[in-house]
């Protein structure tokens, strides 16, 4: 991924950056505002568009490399657009012990994803693994968008995805 130095959109992709500007003015331009800004931008756009990061760097008076460095450090941030449904399979200890691997495989098979994680080509689903959702007593646990599903098994999981559509 390349970064433009002038802080302007470098790829003519036509992404509307109005919300980014608003978010920056809500959060402020101190260095410690960077992470909250990135979080809000990601909430809004479901990922961090390159142009948005460049704009944030310019407004905060820091280098695009710093923004990029922070964005790639934290697992929460994504530089690629995500699907409509974000399926997060817990890969914490309790869920691992109770067999989340078979659930991941069942999901991949159901949504047609070759890789262990990522987004389907039709932009419908993103599969991720996360560490501990705090529902360990109900392992294995999965979150789809904001809804938590406890005590999953492959069959229940496929049924839950079927229900989404």
């Amino acid at each position: 991924m390349t970064q433009t130095n002038d802080g302007k959109c470098g790829c003519c992709c036509g992404i509307d950056l109005t919300r980014v500007k608003e978010i920056i003015s809500e959060c402020g331009t101190k260095e410690n505002c960077l992470i909250p800004i990135l979080q809000k931008v990601q909430d809004e756009y479901r990922y961090l568009p390159e142009e948005a990061m460049a704009l944030i760097a310019e407004k905060l008076g820091i280098s695009p490399a710093t923004v990029f460095g922070v964005a790639t450090f934290y697992a929460q941030f994504s530089l690629d657009p995500k699907g409509k449904y974000i399926i997060k399979v817990c890969n914490g200890t309790a869920c691992h012990v109770r067999g989340n691997k078979t659930i991941i495989d069942a999901i991949r098979n159901r949504i047609g994803l070759e890789a262990q994680s990522g987004t389907t080509s039709d932009m419908m689903y993103t599969l991720e693994t996360v560490s501990c959702l705090g529902a360990c007593s109900l392992a294995p646990a999965v979150i789809i968008n904001d809804k938590v599903y406890g005590t999953m098994n492959p069959t229940k999981m496929v049924a839950a995805i079927d229900e989404l559509e």
Binding site: G92, C132, G134
Partner: peptide, 8 residues
């Protein structure tokens, strides 16, 4: 931050 997986 409670990062320890399996703790809540």
């Amino acid at each position: 931050d409670e990062g320890d997986p399996g703790a809540f």
